[in-house]
Design a binder for these strands. Structure first.
Lengths: 171, 171
DNA sequence: TTTACTGCAAATATTTTGCAATATC
DNA sequence: GATATTGCAAAATATTTGCAGTAAA
C-alpha cells in the first residue's frame, strides 16, 4: 500500500460516504485501494463541478500521485455507486459533481460558470410526474443564459461601443 | 459550385428554414455554398436525434459527398443560427437535433434511445420561472430511466435467472 | 479578382486499453 | 499465492486546424 496517514485515517473513518463506497466495493468484489480513497477524499472537499484534469491536479496538490487511468477508473466506480454524476454542458468539457439533493444547473454561456440552485417547486413537480411507458430513474435540468457578472460586463461593452459611435458621428 | 438539382431547388425554395439560414449567412457575411444547403436539407428530413457520423452517412447516402470538416463547420453555423442544438446525454456521444418547440428528453439508460415529449405544464413552469442574478436563454431537461421495451426484456431476464435457480435447487 | 470555403491530412483533446509490476485479499 | 489494480505508453475516438486548391461574390 502507498502509505499516507491522512488517507488511511479517511479510509477507516466512519464517514457515511466512506461507508457507502465500502459497501459498493465489497458487494462488487472490488478492492479497497489507497488510490481510491485518496480520490474520494479529494472529491469530498470539492463543492460544485470539476473536470478530470482539475481533480487529478487537486489530488497531486495534496502530495498524492495517481495516474490518469486510475482517476478515470475510480470516477467510473463512483458513478456506478451513484455517488458521482457526469455532466456535459453545451460547448464545455465533461464535468463531475457529487450526487446530493436534486438541483437545477444554471450555466453561464459567457463565462462557463455553473451554479446550482435548489428548486422545491420543480422537485415536487418532477416527483409527481410520470411518463408514458418510461420508468424514471433520475433527471437533470440545465438552464443556459447569462450570469449577472457577465451581464454587467456586456452592458459596459455595449455602452462603450455606443459612446465611440457617438464620438465618431460628431467629427 | 458542385451541381445538384435537388439541392439547388431546396436552396432557392421558399422554405422558412432556408430563409432563416440565408438571413443568418447574409448577416454574417458568409457564403451560400451547395454543401451547406445539402447538409441543411438532410437535417430537415431527420426527426429526432443524430450524431455527426450518422448525418454524414445520410448525406452521402443521398449521393452527395461532403468532408467531415464541412459537416462540423455547417453544424456549428446552424447552432450559431439557433437552428440546431447539441446534446450530450450520460455515457453517449454528442447528438444533435433541430430546435423546435421546447420538450423533455427521455433517455433510456439501457438501449440509449431518446424520446421527446411535450410537457405544457413544465413549459409553463419554466416560462414563469426567474432565477436570481441570472438571465435565462434556453434550457434542457434530461430524464434518465428505462423505456418499456427494455423494462420488459429485463423482467424476462430476471425471470429466467429465477427459473434457473429454482431448477438448480431441485437437484 | 478577392477572399471565404472545402477537403485532406495532420494535430489536439479526451478517454480507453494492453500489459508488466505491484498491492490487496 | 491468486488475482485485481495501478501506471505507463500506446491506441482509439472525437473534434479542430493548417493549408492548398476551388468556388462564391
Amino acid at each position: 500500500m502507498k502509505t499516507d496517514p491522512n488517507i488511511e485515517d479517511f479510509a477507516s473513518s466512519n464517514n457515511p460516504v466512506v461507508r457507502k463506497f465500502n459497501e459498493y466495493l465489497d458487494s462488487h468484489g472490488l478492492r479497497r485501494t489507497t488510490e481510491r480513497y485518496a480520490i474520494l477524499n479529494r472529491i469530498m472537499g470539492i463543492n460544485g463541478h470539476f473536470t478530470i484534469e482539475e481533480l487529478q491536479q487537486l489530488i497531486e496538490g495534496d502530495g498524492f500521485r495517481v495516474s490518469r487511468s486510475t482517476v478515470y477508473n475510480t470516477v467510473e466506480l463512483l458513478m456506478d455507486a451513484r455517488m458521482l454524476r457526469r455532466h456535459v454542458f453545451e460547448g464545455m468539457q465533461a464535468q463531475y459533481e457529487r450526487i446530493t439533493l436534486p438541483h437545477t444547473h444554471l450555466i453561464c454561456t459567457t463565462c462557463g460558470k455553473v451554479k446550482e440552485v435548489r428548486d422545491t417547486n420543480f422537485a415536487a413537480f418532477m416527483n409527481a410526474r410520470r411518463f408514458n411507458a418510461f420508468n424514471t430513474d433520475h433527471y437533470s435540468l440545465y438552464v443556459y443564459g447569462t450570469c449577472s457578472t457577465c451581464a454587467r460586463k456586456l452592458k459596459r461593452t455595449r455602452q462603450a461601443v455606443k459612446d465611440k459611435d457617438e464620438k465618431n458621428k460628431k467629427r
